[in-house]
Design a binder for these strands. Structure first.
Length: 814
RNA sequence: GCGGACGUGGCGGAAUUGGUAGACGCGCCAGAUUCAGGAUCUGGUGGGAGCGAUCCCGUGGAGGUUCGAGUCCUCUCGUCCGCACCA
């Protein structure tokens, strides 16, 4: 009788007692670092976690059984706003709430039989973790990679904090979905833009090992574009009005420069501000511009193109023509220089704007073939005309020559622009890593001395949700200046929690007893890094994965690691759906993992999740499917009675077996052969499970005890990563687990002496023939013609094709 | 608009370099067992025609390459995801 509860409890206790999953500290055996993204301790695990950790666990267990030194750690991404929200709502301290959640969730994960190293477990809110994070932050400050500036930032009015660009989804807060507003405050930024080029270039190293989608998303996010930037000179009168001689513009289409008929500034452009301050625009115009400025990013995106003439004229740098200068709502202040040269003939946006305000449209590029259609913008490359000395050139060539001309004459220069912006890392929240900086009236902003780290959070705080508790604390921020010793104030901002998750994978490489002395040991990161297989949700395609790549490069340049990229292979697992929608509390379509484990056992939950869909695809929850998984395990358990205990793989004389016995062996070894690709290459666990099911079905059609025994020897090995508890129990009873090691494929079991070939006539399947494995082509053809006589009779045979082991195709005519 | 993924039975999904489409599981049908229900076991199950051996049609659609296409090429329709006035 299969009793999952007893078996699972037994082995979970055994694994714990034995410390069965701690990696060897010696750096001798070939290593395998398998990592599922660590969870936020929200309170309870959900099916997404179960899927994430089951996939990682299957991979880790496989490699362990193959004799590799496997690092498969777990930890807790423990800082963050939900803890504060819980504090506000339930009057419980964030620290208490967080650590209690961790204790509960650890039990839930253990109940799934996940083979984690528990020695290396930590929470990112542990002060001993903050200590090193603060140390890195100080290094970055000293290197100028962390800096402070006043900036218009994304402010979430609900969470009372700033958000990074990456955390604003369609104009709303990524966490609470509140509409984000703009606010100007002093903030800390990490200079991720210094690494834009390398972050972009190194994506090509990840190709083939990371999903294309993630690579494409990061490329797009970094958003590199090359072109020409130059100064548009204002005429004398305009310069006086604007209080500026010129303004900078950027274009990726210098080949269209002779088609410039106007210029457009962003509503926030300094020249526009000056005009407003000097009251040089009439009240209607001023009101209109203010309205544009006050539109948030989201509504502006959807708004119709709007603008107005500023009464200024610029000089075309090549033709000397007078170019009217407009303000326009479609010009983004944060990209490039916040101003554009407009070429309505060859840019859709400029065209739309020109049509609306009746501005001239001048075509200067024509297609290589065919007519120019002047009812719309022609945005493709082509041949230049009406472009002075550049007329007749192709776009590509003209771009180069025009940039060269500008550089030669000192008018402008070749420029690369990125969409990526510096990472805003400060948060006005309590439950985060304190930024280890001190404000001194005399010395300015000074880093805390490293020997004083960590700067820890005060515990006696009241969290109300209004303002920053560190700012409001009566004494915490009072300190002395690390430089001059005078009175000073601590920085009260804390770090974005994505900083913690940007290096946690390095921490795991070093045994916990060193954690007080070092963030991680170089010898350990040299051995373990990069992570061989990283597994997590696609929602981290940009945020976490880009920040981690950045941090790795920074830590490399600071001398901590010798590594360019942290994650060698990435698997983004699909969502878990119920009734076609993502499981969520608000939709009320969740399935509680604890209930499934309680009812069927962890092995059933794991089997169902790995069988129902390949890991990268969405997985539709099915109660009937879970029942099916449970039935399979029960059969697997019950039929193990057909095998006999042994310490060695039985020797079988293959030739003496019956057809059914041979087929059973074949299915068993086919599954074994498949397992290598599944566990090491494509992770299509569903197909391996199907192969094991076929093998069990085939074993059940015969009665040979040795074949049964051999079958279980192989199948408990293959299924151990997927359904570990029942596999350990059976393998322990039958084989003393002697089979938990690499197994050789018995080649004779895979080679049939007779093969079945399909006979097709003109590609249509007509018959089947059975021929000896080594039958000659002539013999096969003769058999095929006999079997397909009915379709060949009276017709001329044009061609005969024999595909060994597959089919025969006879092509006839008439 | 740009980028990515994808489209196969009632459902989830299988199908090496092009080589017997629908493995495996769910569901459904029938039978066995059981006091009953449930559970278990055995068999069947793409659609259509026929008593039947058999035949025809079938991988979103239309073409093409090929002895042979779910797989390759062209066009087209549709779904999902990400980014989006980025000059």
């Amino acid at each position: 009788m299969y009793r999952p509860k007893e078996i699972e409890k037994k082995w979970q206790e055994f694994w714990k007692k034995e410390g069965a999953f701690e990696p060897a500290e010696a750096h001798e055996a070939p290593k395998m670092y398998v990592l599922s993204m660590f969870p936020y301790p929200s309170g309870r695990i959900h099916m997404g976690h179960v899927r994430n950790y089951t996939i990682g666990d299957a991979i880790a267990r496989y490699h362990r059984k193959m004799g590799r030194n496997v690092l498969h750690p777990i930890g807790w991404d423990a800082f963050g706003m939900p803890a504060e929200n819980a504090a506000i709502k339930h009057k419980v301290h964030p620290k208490k709430w967080t650590y209690e959640n961790i204790d509960y969730m650890r039990k839930e994960l253990d109940a799934l039989g996940l083979s984690f190293s528990h020695d290396r477990e930590f929470a990112t809110c542990d002060p001993v973790y903050s200590k090193w994070e603060q140390s890195f932050i100080i290094d970055m400050w000293e290197k100028g990679l962390l800096y402070r500036k006043k900036a218009a930032v994304n402010w979430c009015p609900n969470d009372q904090t700033v958000l990074a660009n990456e955390q604003v989804i369609e104009g709303r807060c990524w966490r609470c979905d509140t509409e984000v507003v703009q606010k100007e405050i002093e903030q800390y930024f990490l200079k991720i833009t210094d690494y834009a080029e390398e972050l972009l270039a190194d994506l090509s190293k990840l190709e083939g090992n990371w999903p294309n989608q993630v690579i494409a998303m990061q490329r797009n996010w970094i958003g590199k574009s090359e072109g020409l930037s130059f100064a548009m000179q204002l005429d004398e009168e305009s310069a006086q009005k604007a209080g500026a001689e010129s303004f900078e513009v950027f274009t990726t289409r210098p080949d269209t420069i002779y088609g410039v008929t106007y210029a457009a500034l962003a509503p926030e452009h300094p020249i526009v501000k000056t005009l407003l301050e000097k009251n040089l625009l009439d009240s209607d115009a001023a009101a209109k511009i203010c309205a544009m400025q006050n539109q948030n990013a989201r509504t502006r995106q959807q708004a119709e193109k709007e603008g107005l003439f500023l009464g200024l004229y610029a000089i075309h740098p090549l033709t000397g023509a007078k170019i009217p200068v407009w303000v326009a709502n479609f010009v983004l202040t944060e990209y490039g220089s916040g101003a554009v040269m407009a070429v309505p003939a060859h840019d859709e946006r400029d065209f739309e704007f020109a049509k609306k305000y009746d501005l001239p449209i001048k075509y200067v590029i024509k297609p290589k073939e065919g007519e120019l259609d002047t009812s719309k913008a022609y945005t493709e490359p082509g041949i230049l005309f009406d472009s002075g000395e550049f007329s007749g050139l192709e776009s590509q060539e003209a771009k180069k020559k025009i940039i060269a001309y500008f550089e030669e004459k000192g008018l402008g220069k070749r420029t690369i622009n990125y969409r990526l912006k510096d990472w805003l890392v400060s948060r006005q929240r309590y439950w985060g890593t304190p930024i280890p900086l001190v404000h001194c009236k005399k010395c300015g902003i000074v880093p805390e001395k490293k020997e004083n780290l960590p700067v820890t959070l005060p515990e006696d705080v009241e969290i109300t949700g209004e303002g920053n508790p560190l700012e409001l604390h009566p004494t915490w921020k009072k300190t002395t200046c690390p430089k001059c010793g005078g009175p000073a104030q601590r920085e009260t901002d804390t770090l974005d929690t994505f900083v913690e998750s940007s290096w946690y994978f390095l921490r795991y490489t070093t045994p916990s007893r060193y954690w007080e002395e070092v963030p991680f040991r170089k010898e350990d990161t040299d051995y373990w890094m990069p992570v061989d297989q990283y597994i997590g949700g696609i929602e981290h395609a940009i945020l976490h994965l880009l920040y981690s790549r950045f941090f790795t490069k920074v830590l490399r340049d600071l001398g901590y690691v010798d590594l360019d990229e942290p994650f060698k292979r990435l698997l983004t697992q699909g969502m878990v759906l119920k009734d076609g929608a993502k499981m969520s509390k608000s939709k009320g379509n969740t399935v509680d993992p604890d209930e499934i484990v309680e009812r069927y056992g962890a092995d059933t939950a794991r089997l169902f999740i790995l069988f129902a869909a390949p890991p990268a695809k969405e997985l539709e929850w099915s109660d009937a499917g879970v029942e099916g998984a449970y039935r399979f395990i029960k059969r697997f358990w019950d039929r193990s009675a057909n095998a006999k205990p042994t310490q060695t793989l039985p020797k079988i004389d293959h030739r003496s077996l019956s057809k059914e016995e041979k087929l059973a062996r074949k299915k068993v070894y086919e599954a074994l052969q498949k397992s290598k690709d599944v566990y090491e290459k494509h992770y299509a666990f569903n197909t391996l499970i199907a192969a094991c099911m076929e093998a069990l079905n085939a074993l059940s059609d015969q009665k040979n005890e040795d074949v049964w025994t051999e079958g279980y020897w192989v199948l408990t090995n293959l299924l151990e990563p997927i359904i570990p508890h029942v596999s350990w129990e059976i393998a322990d009873r039958l084989f003393g687990r002697a089979n938990f090691a690499p197994i050789e494929v018995a080649k004779e079991a895979l080679e049939d002496e007779a093969v079945t070939l399909a006979v097709t006539v003109n590609g249509k399947r007509r018959a089947e023939i059975e021929v000896a494995k080594d039958a000659s082509k002539d013999a096969i053809l003769a058999a095929a013609k006999e079997a397909a006589a009915k379709w060949i009779e009276g017709k001329e045979i044009v061609k005969e094709i024999v595909v060994p082991g597959r089919l025969v195709n006879i092509v006839v005519r008439g």
